[in-house]
Design a protein around this nucleic acid. Structure first.
Length: 726
RNA sequence: GGGUGCUUAGUUCAGUGGUAGAACGCUUCGUUCACAUCGAAGAGGUCACAGGUUCGAUCCCUGUAGCACCCACCA
């Protein structure tokens, strides 16, 4: 017997070697698999990890789950493709890089965009390489020869094609809208990238002509273009449509009262000042009353400072507040208003939700900007239908509700980002007449005024605009062989929290662009949390590096610990004791295999042997039991119940095979106690048979140890367990 | 203000319309050559609460409470 079995199982000496063998075998690539011609494809596109750091424990769950599915299907004879990738992760990465710059005492705003781009490129390429090796350590059997990066030239080009096609189809428009503006990062954000925090802010009741109204933002007064009341409000009905001259700190101005149903008569005094340039609701009110009232007047600039003089050149007050930050301005203005008796009262108990940047927590300043938008309503409808008809199945099903809720209430999608790190928008503007031309290459002349003064839109796409096309772009839509062979993909396995960001958009754009569903199943895994159920984050200091765990306990143990007890869509708490338990299990497998092999040295295996073996009734019972286990586990695998399958196998191997079957057969194996050579052969056969099958069933979950043992079995058929028949 | 999920052993969590399950931890015993990263035996639960459906509910329905998360333009 091979003496590698001496001592406890040592993952370190096995894992690296085995992975290398697998990779060299070429079997990660479906083109090399010994599959039948009629074999069906099974495809998973790996959600590309962000190339702005290294893998953390949160990546272990998805990669393990995907690997389990892939290995299972590969053994089932499918033509399996698991395509890995990495995401440039636009804004996310730029934020990470900016923090790095800050530490070095540099600022993004002082670096030439091209240089900044190059620096971030180098940064991501470096991270990408580290991450690839980490993915290997996890045992991922993905096809590295097909790996993609979201900034590969073909991905960039085809992402732009989609934009151009959408434009042709009338789905893209450039609109002056209020954008969620982060004054720190100097970029607009999508609605999804805004978090809301509960804040306590003074609510000022200010006098406004014949009215008193409540506001938390008196400083936006200078941008007011109307007053609004609910059109059904009896108290104020008579004022609607009338214009008033009001006294304010910058003198007298005229302002009109309008009626709008968005106003809640019960809030404050039921009167609202309308500031369309700095408030989403007010902007919408203005859009409904465009003919009656003046448009937005911007009085806060992109740095979050007062910008008044250009609107009120003759006002001394305007000069006084000019350039002040919002908070400073507010304080001063309130003081001045109090001096003039314009403040009736201040309510200090008021709590409300304030939108903040999801990265830095800076209060979002709604800001009027021209941006590219995708019309979502027409795209949402087919995406709703397809899931309703169950053409795409959700695991767990309950998340469909969230999906529908999102799509039914969807608003147009702002896809412009004011950063350098991303895919450039293929849009060009004539500097003479302002005409926009949507083309990949720079046009020679403006299509309207025929001049050649044309500049590129310096902005880039929201990163989700390109990741939303990931399943078909990675496969080489529309003409590549892979696209024809492997699309639609089989399963999209991803974290539940990016359903609206990513899954929804992949379905929406996938349907639009390919006229096909991008995947048949979506499997949502939960987030990994620490022992106490808290989110892991660097600032809390509870981050666990998966490689440290692997060093201690091995990859197989780590994999088992994140699979067992992990149900789709639910979060999972991580603790080291659990991993230790499965490290012990790995050793159990190792020792049991050692015992079986030790006692099988006299055993000559051949496929025709099984007929000659004299099995006892209890042997047959044990084999039957094994058969029913196989059936049960197969069914669980087919229905995505990996946590149950893994637990079932764990229990069978340890408490049935090792504790019972091996024990009850010991006497049949020893020279001194055996009944006959024939009976010994039967016992050897039984144990080898059960061991071989158990190892196969365990392989998707614990690929390294099972492969290593398999290669030492006299019963092995193929060169690798990885491609052995399930 | 809406929505979703969770509440089961000391802990972390599975699970089922019909005597409650696992892992870890705990207690007692065991050092005969597969394994002390082990074995044997064991303690430990009104399955959040209150109603309802049912022959029977931890499971299905309704409501309540606590926790977690998501969404929302009430200034």
């Amino acid at each position: 017997m091979n003496d590698i079995f001496n001592g406890p199982y040592d993952p370190k000496s096995v894992e690296e070697k085995i992975y290398k063998q697998w990779e060299e075998s070429g079997y990660f690539n479906p083109d090399n698999l010994p599959t039948k011609k009629s074999a069906k494809p099974f495809t998973i596109i790996m959600p590309p990890p962000n190339a702005n750091g290294s893998l953390h424990l949160g990546h272990v769950i998805p990669i393990t789950l995907e690997d389990i599915m892939i290995r299972y299907k590969r053994m089932k004879g499918f033509k399996t493709l698991w395509l890995p990738g990495a995401d440039h992760a636009g804004f996310e990465t730029q934020v990470v890089y900016e923090k790095k710059l800050e530490k070095e005492g540099r600022s993004r705003f002082k670096i030439h965009p091209e240089q900044l781009w190059q620096e971030i490129w180098d940064f991501t390429q470096h991270n990408k390489k580290t991450m690839e090796n980490q993915v290997r350590r996890l045992g991922a059997s993905c096809d590295w020869s097909r790996e993609k990066f979201t900034l590969d030239p073909d991905i960039i080009s085809k992402t732009q094609d989609t934009f151009i096609q959408m434009h042709k189809d009338g789905l893209i428009y450039r609109g002056e809208r209020l954008v969620n503006w982060c004054t720190k990062h100097q970029t607009g954000l999508s609605d999804l990238e805004v978090n809301y925090e509960t804040r306590k802010d003074p609510l000022y009741y200010i006098k406004y002509g014949p009215f008193t109204l409540a506001t938390v933002r008196p400083e936006t007064k200078f941008g007011d273009t109307a007053l609004a009341v609910n059109s059904k409000d009896k108290r104020y009905k008579k004022y609607i449509g009338k214009e008033f001259e009001v006294e304010s700190i910058i003198g007298k101005t005229k302002i009109k009262v309008i009626g709008d149903d968005a106003i809640d008569p019960k809030f404050g005094t039921g009167v609202v000042k309308v500031t369309p340039a700095h408030d989403q609701t007010d902007f919408e009110i203005w859009q409904r009353h465009k003919d009656e009232i003046p448009g937005p007047r911007e009085i806060i600039n992109k740095f979050g400072k007062m910008d008044l003089i250009r609107h009120f050149p003759d006002s001394d007050e305007a000069k006084k507040y000019e350039g002040l930050k919002i908070n400073e301005a507010r304080k001063l203005i309130v003081e001045d208003m109090q001096k003039r008796g314009l403040i009736e009262k201040i309510d200090n108990t008021y709590e409300h939700e304030v939108g903040v940047c999801y990265k830095c927590g800076t209060i979002i300043e709604p800001r009027l900007m021209a941006q590219w938008f995708v019309k979502m309503k027409p795209l949402a409808r087919p995406a709703i239908d397809i899931v309703k008809k169950n053409k795409i199945k959700f695991i767990p099903v309950r998340l469909k509700k969230i999906y529908f809720h999102w799509l039914k209430n969807i608003r147009d999608w702002n896809i412009s980002r004011q950063i350098v790190w991303g895919i450039q928008i293929p849009a060009w503007q004539c500097q003479e007449c302002g005409e926009w031309i949507i083309l990949k290459e720079k046009p020679l002349k403006c299509s309207k005024c025929k001049t050649s003064k044309i500049e590129r839109d310096p902005e880039v796409f929201d990163t989700w605009f390109s990741s939303g096309q990931w399943p078909f772009l990675t496969l080489g839509y529309p003409n590549e062989k892979d696209y024809k062979n492997f699309y639609p993909t089989s399963v999209m396995e991803t974290a539940a929290d990016i359903l609206p960001f990513w899954v929804m958009r992949m379905i929406v754009i996938g349907l639009y662009r390919t006229k096909k569903i991008p995947f048949r199943h979506v499997y949502f895994n939960g987030l990994i949390r620490d022992k106490k159920g808290q989110k892991m984050s660097k600032s809390k200091g509870n981050v666990v590096n998966p490689l440290d765990i692997i060093e201690l306990y091995g990859t197989d143990a780590l994999r088992m610990s994140v699979i067992i007890g992990n149900t789709p869509g639910n979060d999972l708490n991580f603790f080291e004791d659990k991993v230790r338990g499965y490290r012990n299990f790995a050793n159990k497998i190792w020792q049991a295999s050692r015992f079986v092999l030790m006692n099988a040295e006299t055993f000559k295996y051949s496929t025709s042997l099984s007929k000659k073996i004299k099995m006892t009734a209890s042997d047959r019972k044990r084999l039957k039991e094994l058969e029913s286990l196989k059936k049960k586990v197969t069914k669980q695998m087919d229905t995505f119940k990996f946590h149950l399958a893994a637990e079932e196998l764990y229990h069978y191997f340890w408490h049935t095979f090792a504790d019972k079957i091996i024990e009850e057969n010991k006497n049949r194996l020893k020279e001194e106690t055996m009944k006959s050579a024939e009976d010994r052969t039967a016992a050897q056969y039984l144990l080898l048979q059960i061991l071989t099958e158990s190892i196969k069933l365990l392989h998707p979950f614990m690929p390294f140890i099972t492969e290593e043992i398999y290669q030492n079995l006299p019963t092995k058929g193929m060169e690798f367990l990885m491609v052995n028949k399930w």
